[in-house]
């Protein structure tokens, strides 16, 4: 057979395969995305202990820590609050952030460990583009986090932690008339907080995904707790307003302001009360884009860090 003939038949075969390839139509992408999402949720629901501990952790803070510190830490009136609020109300957005942070670190950093290494490789041999696979996995992680957050908020509701923002109007204003309907408090807050949760979850998930490709040394989750979760959580506005930190340490105040986690919490705090904190929105969106870009770069087969190092988790 001449070289030309081989070339032609190879072309023919390529066309044939291209026609059959799942990546040739949008439906294939949807199947892949929903499959990844479904697996993340299913796995989470099967791991009852994980669900339980993910729920107990913020509830312990809310019921015990916040009760104990209610009288120690006075919170003055700061936006978005219009009256004095109980300490429990103040730290609720911080605890939501904690759920998102733990979940992101757990689902993404677990890829570093041996048990999950195989699962990551299974994902990456899929014919779909790598950025698409990583983004789908991230969204799957966020979906799991949302489940946890809403169960937490449901329990917190009976602890009198309820959104109190202005009613959410959905519809069209026509002159003086308004066509549509209004969603009153407290349900409105549970809706307005959703985009903030998704964006913050994506930011933290992308950060963890990037870390999973860079970090070799973290032997177990305790290392992640000490070096990532605790510093990020405590150097933020989760447990105390930043003006209180400024009183004791101006440098620490600057660090807290720089911490993207602070902005995620403020975004959630404002959204929960039906308001938008524009600075936080910009910072969180920007960080999401940067972290996501870094993670996709790290997992890129030709440029990425994994290629330089020779494997996942090595």
């Amino acid at each position: 057979m001449s070289t030309q003939a081989i070339g032609e038949s190879a072309n023919h075969i390529e066309q044939e395969i291209r026609k059959k390839a799942p990546t040739s139509h949008l439906g294939g992408y949807w199947t892949c995305f929903s499959g990844i999402l479904w697996r993340e949720v299913l796995r989470f629901l099967h791991q009852r202990e994980r669900f339980f501990s993910a729920l107990v952790r913020p509830l312990v803070w809310l019921f015990i820590f916040a009760a104990g510190f209610r009288n120690v830490l006075g919170v003055s009136i700061i936006p978005p609050y219009e009256t004095y609020v109980l300490y429990e109300t103040y730290i609720t957005p911080g605890l939501i952030g904690m759920i998102l942070l733990f979940n992101a670190m757990q689902s993404s950093l677990s890829m570093v460990y041996d048990r999950e290494t195989g699962a990551m490789r299974t994902l990456l041999v899929s014919p779909f583009p790598r950025w698409f696979l990583l983004l789908s996995k991230l969204i799957g992680g966020v979906a799991v986090a949302l489940l946890q957050v809403y169960v937490f908020l449901f329990i917190a509701y009976f602890w009198d932690i309820q959104p109190d923002g202005p009613a959410l109007a959905i519809g069209l204003p026509m002159g003086d008339a308004f066509y549509g309907f209004e969603i009153p408090a407290p349900i409105n807050g549970y809706i307005t907080v959703l985009p903030a949760l998704i964006l913050s979850g994506l930011m933290l998930g992308a950060l963890a995904l990037f870390m999973s490709s860079v970090i070799r040394q973290l032997e177990n989750f305790a290392g992640v707790m000490n070096f990532v979760i605790f510093p990020m959580f405590f150097a933020s506005s989760a447990l105390y307003p930043l003006w209180r930190i400024r009183e004791s340490s101006p440098i620490l105040y600057e660090i807290c302001k720089f911490n993207p986690f602070s902005h995620a919490i403020e975004l959630i705090r404002f959204a929960f009360h039906g308001r938008l904190d524009l600075t936080s929105l910009i910072v969180v969106t920007g960080c999401t884009i940067v972290f996501l870009g870094a993670a996709i770069y790290a997992y890129n087969p030709s440029k990425g860090l994994i290629a330089k190092r020779g494997g996942i988790g090595r």
Binding site: A21, P22, T23, G27, G28, Y29, T31, C32, S34, G35, I36, W38, R39, L42, R43, H46, Q47, D114, T117, G118, A119, R121, T122, L123, S126, P127, F128
Partner: peptide, 23 residues
Amino acid sequence: SRTLDLDLSLSQNLAYHASLQGI
């Protein structure tokens, strides 16, 4: 290395893999 999800059933594992292949 073993790459199946231990807590999922055989058919759930296969369904996940099929979706990764766009089936």
